[in-house]
Write a protein that binds this DNA or RNA. Structure first.
Length: 900
RNA sequence: GGGGAUGUGGCGGAAUUGGUAGACGCGCUAGCUUCAGGAGCUAGUGGCAGCAAUGUCGUGAGAGUUCAAAUCUCUCCAUCCCCACCA
């Protein structure tokens, strides 16, 4: 057989025609049902794409093409996420300006993508580094600023000494800078921070509204938000007076109480010491009282020197130093307890201080053993007989005398062979919930009730309050680098004075903070109007003249001073204050890489709108995104940031829906043939251009969808690719057997076509592309056995194939005489009658083991099936001389004879 | 330490309301075809026993429920991903 399937010629031809006829241009008409299908837009790096990158794009393209054929108005756009450190570092290394590097990289990426035949409407292409785009990124930031959601912070942040910039916690990988792998430091820096924590509760709860998200991704987000409920408890310090304020109470500039966050306030009676993080203000604040300041300073300095990696090494032994000269007072029993500084307590979580309950926390236990601190058990498990007796004993003893547990008692209990009770509770007595003992008013209460009771008690006494804590931190939003969106804020000393004075005058400051989401919260001071952000951050004034363009510079290397390179441009930095006209300076920090990607999907809807971020009517029609596909690595950054921005835009009335992505699927990575990640380092990278050149875009697409389950990692196989190509060649070769006579087709092949239509449609919908292709292969294998086939039959199959292999399908479709593109066709329907089997192989089992299969009518009844089964010679052999206990009949499937 | 996912031939993987395990693809074997190379066609292909019919074992390991378990329950093991001294 002469094989004349010339993929190069075909693919070039149709790429050109599709472009000329604007086949994939998205219609602005809104009379059809819409379907918005979105890929996570790529970061155009210098390395170009490898074959793994397009896997997700192929999948969305298959879905998009099917949806087009099913009559939807499909939006399937593409763009570039191009600001940020990778390009800037690449630019510095190769001495190419980042804007030029970006342009070059985009050109390479685009050429690579175009070869694969995607349905992108390139007239809607966006680029986060285009001023017409980032104008709106800046605009969103300004709205947040104006509503009080952005604030200046001088807290120590994560600093990468190599990239010379501050980073968000999310930008770390194993405690190192994700970009360059350097050990990071903690450094106090002025930063702009976004109050994402204001949205923590909604970001958590609204996950419930997303049934079409994969559970694993939602779970990652829940863990990242990390909500825990408990209480803040105040311990007064030494001989200072107890305070009734809700905040740290400052008298003589001294902190007179220590606040801790705990999820187990019910164990308060078991607290025998306290620990503060090395960064805790108490350490510097009590200098006159602390007797061993030098020893403590040494410890704190040592802790500072340790990298984050060393500090969080779980295997290491706990260390700490007591703050001698001061004591804390446990509010529940007025016991004086020692305070330690130790680096096992983190400054960034809760209040940076803990109450230590060594009997019920493993870390506190380790520390207590090392420093010989008392251990007092206050909870016993209520799940086993054994502990119940223990409890009874304790209770009677506790009544006669407030019994103190010695370290020896507890150690015995804790190191005993794991009791059934301990196993019930995750193999540990530490975390066990149970019944409180030795806890005065809490004795005999189960954990849950004890928590409630003690919180009420604390609130009554002013010694604490119910509290919720999140692991999620506010978003450090400024970078001391060049290649990002300039932050459109201007600092004016004159306006600073006005704002500060105003701030002092107002009494209901709390009220102002609560009003932040009212769209028009404005404050008139003298002749000027201030927004909330300008009051909360005195001196900072919004620059509404957008876009604020990133100035062209020759030198964009980090300044080395911790300031952005923009700070070295006086002509850009020094401006007139847009409010009062006085001398002022621009903010020189830029936005992080994640800014543009937090809202880009909205811009595709209305990409050239000069007046608004997006037209609200258009947004109402196209939003939310129906299907979003990308890597799981974005589960906790991009996808949380984007949900946060979207909810904010919803709150200020820019968008119509409060969640941006209805359905989310993550794509499994493609590994190299050696099972490792594709990387220059291993020399195992496969370039899609070469694959497309040799086997064609269609074969590449079919293979990547056939490899295995979509979300699972899978190794590349050159032979597998050949298999996909073979399949396409078979399809190609069969066109020679087509006849115009539609009566040619056997009932069998016709029925199989209908089954295939059903299977392929359903499988694409469920992202089971591999089995969809398998079904088409089965159809083609069967079609090969037919000498002739009708034009109609073959044409219908081509429609099924077209989402996977668009070029070949289009070529064959036109060769068969169709005037219009195959993509203007209708997706075929199947006849439910033809999908059903007429005949089945009735399975006959004896004691559950297959012994015979008998051809039978599909709707055979129980009586008949049983007769048929018992009549079989093979079956007779197996039941001879045995007693039939039971006969099970499953309609359309089997007969099982149970014998003894 | 916590959370999630996965475990089936030589390989990628099918089969999940419990009902013929190994679809489909790769690889491999034999035959045909070809000057040869590549390719193509036909047949076979989980292990063991057997010329065969057939039997028997078999879905990470072990137990259990059931007429029937890859699928449900329990215990354990391994691999991967995310988070991690989170109080």
């Amino acid at each position: 057989m002469i094989n004349n399937y010339d993929h190069k010629k075909i693919e070039e031809k149709w790429r050109k025609i599709w472009e000329e006829t604007e086949l994939y241009k998205t219609s602005e008409s809104r009379d059809k049902e819409k379907c918005y299908i979105l890929d996570m837009f790529p970061y155009p790096s210098g390395a170009g794409l490898h074959v793994g990158h397009p896997k997700g794009y192929i999948a969305t393209d298959v879905v998009a093409r099917m949806k087009m054929l099913q009559g939807y108005n499909v939006l399937h756009p593409m763009g570039w996420d191009a600001f940020g450190l990778p390009t800037e570092n690449y630019a510095i290394k190769n001495k190419i300006h980042p804007s030029i590097a970006t342009e070059k990289n985009i050109a390479i990426f685009k050429a690579q993508l175009e070869k694969l035949g995607f349905t992108y409407d390139w007239s809607r292409e966006i680029n986060t580094t285009d001023p017409e785009f980032y104008k709106w990124t800046q605009w969103v930031f300004l709205q947040m600023f104006k509503k009080g959601l952005a604030y200046e912070s001088y807290e120590p942040i994560i600093w990468c000494p190599s990239c010379q910039t501050g980073l968000a916690m999310e930008d770390l990988e194993n405690g190192k800078c994700e970009r360059c792998g350097s050990e990071v430091e903690r450094k106090p820096m002025r930063q702009w921070v976004l109050k994402i924590t204001d949205y923590a509760e909604r970001l958590l709860n609204d996950l419930e509204k997303l049934p079409q998200w994969e559970e694993s991704i939602k779970e990652m987000q829940r863990n990242w938000i990390g909500k825990s409920e408990g209480a803040i408890v105040k311990f007064s310090i030494f001989n200072f007076q107890f305070s009734n304020n809700n905040q740290f109470s400052i008298s003589n500039n001294k902190i007179d109480c220590l606040e801790v966050f705990t999820t187990r306030p019910d164990t308060l009676f078991g607290c025998t010491y306290m620990v503060v993080a090395p960064e805790h203000p108490l350490i510097r604040n009590q200098e006159s009282e602390i007797k061993n300041q030098e020893e403590i300073d040494n410890y704190v300095n040592q802790a500072k020197k340790k990298s984050d990696l060393e500090r969080t090494d779980l295997a290491k032994e706990k260390t700490g130093v007591e703050l001698k000269g001061i004591k804390a007072i446990n509010p529940v029993n007025k016991e004086e307890i020692p305070i330690f500084v130790a680096d096992y307590v983190l400054a960034g979580y809760g209040t940076g201080a803990i109450m230590a309950v060594p009997a019920h926390d493993e870390r506190d236990y380790d520390f207590a053993v090392k420093y010989d601190l008392p251990i007092k058990q206050v909870v016993v498990s209520c799940h086993s007989e054994e502990s119940r007796t223990v409890r009874d004993d304790e209770e009677s003893q506790a009544k006669s005398d407030k019994q103190e547990y010695t370290n020896k008692n507890i150690k015995e209990q804790l190191t005993r062979d794991p009791s059934p009770a301990a196993q019930d509770d995750n193999n540990s007595v530490f975390s066990a919930e149970g019944i409180n003992i030795n806890s005065n008013l809490l004795d005999g209460l189960p954990t849950k009730e004890a928590k409630e009771k003690i919180i009420k008690w604390l609130e009554e006494k002013g010694a604490g309050k119910r509290a919720v804590n999140y692991k999620l931190k506010d978003w450090v939003f400024s970078r001391q680098r060049y290649w990002g969106e300039p932050i459109p804020l201007i600092f004016c000393n004159c306006c600073k004075k006005l704002a500060e004075n105003y701030k002092l005058q107002i009494t209901n400051y709390k009220q102002i903070q609560n009003s932040k989401l009212e769209i028009d919260s404005k404050f008139k001071i003298q002749n000027y109007e201030f927004n909330l952000g300008e009051i909360l951050n005195p001196g900072w004034v919004a620059d509404e003249n957008l876009p604020l363009e990133l100035p062209a510079v020759e030198h964009y290397e980090p300044s080395g001073t911790g300031e952005s390179p923009l700070a070295n441009m006086p002509e850009w930095v020094n401006v007139k204050c847009p409010k009062c006209g006085g001398p002022a300076k621009r903010e020189t920090n830029t936005m992080p890489q994640w800014a543009g990607s937090s809202w880009y999907y909205l811009r595709y809807i209305d990409p050239r709108n000069g007046k608004a971020l997006v037209d609200k009517e258009k947004e109402k029609y196209w939003s939310p995104v129906d299907l979003y596909v990308g890597g799981a690595e974005h589960a906790t950054r991009h996808l949380i940031y984007a949900r946060f921005w979207h909810k904010f835009l919803y709150d200020i009335g820019v968008v119509n829906y409060d969640e941006p992505f209805t359905r989310l699927r993550h794509v499994g990575v493609i590994l190299a043939e050696d099972g490792r990640k594709m990387s220059k380092r291993w020399g195992n990278v496969i370039n899609p251009d070469e694959v497309v050149e040799k086997y064609g875009a269609d074969a590449t697409r079919v293979y990547e969808m056939f490899m295995g389950p979509f979300s699972q990692p899978c190794a590349w196989s050159a032979n597998g690719l050949k298999g996909a190509r073979n399949f396409l060649e078979k399809v190609w070769a069969l066109k020679q057997r087509i006849t115009a006579d539609f009566a040619t087709d056997s009932r069998g092949i016709d029925s199989l076509l209908h089954k295939t239509v059903k299977k392929v449609g359903e499988d694409i919908e469920e992202f089971k592309f591999n089995t969809a292709i398998s079904a088409m292969m089965i159809f083609i294998n069967n079609l090969e056995k037919e000498n002739k086939m009708s034009l109609i039959l073959y044409s219908k199959f081509l429609i099924l194939l077209s989402p996977f292999a668009p070029f070949m399908s289009e070529e064959l479709w036109r060769e068969l005489g169709h005037k219009e593109s195959v993509f203007k066709e209708k997706w075929p329907e199947y006849d439910p009658e033809l999908v059903k089997d007429e005949m089945i192989d009735l399975v006959v089992q004896v004691n559950g083991k297959l012994r015979d299969t008998i051809p039978a009518s599909a709707d055979i009844g129980e009586e008949e099936a049983r007769k048929l089964a018992l009549a079989s010679g093979k079956i007779k052999k197996w039941i001879a001389g045995k007693e039939i206990v039971k006969v099970i009949f499953v309609k359309g499937k089997l007969v099982n004879i149970a014998v003894k």
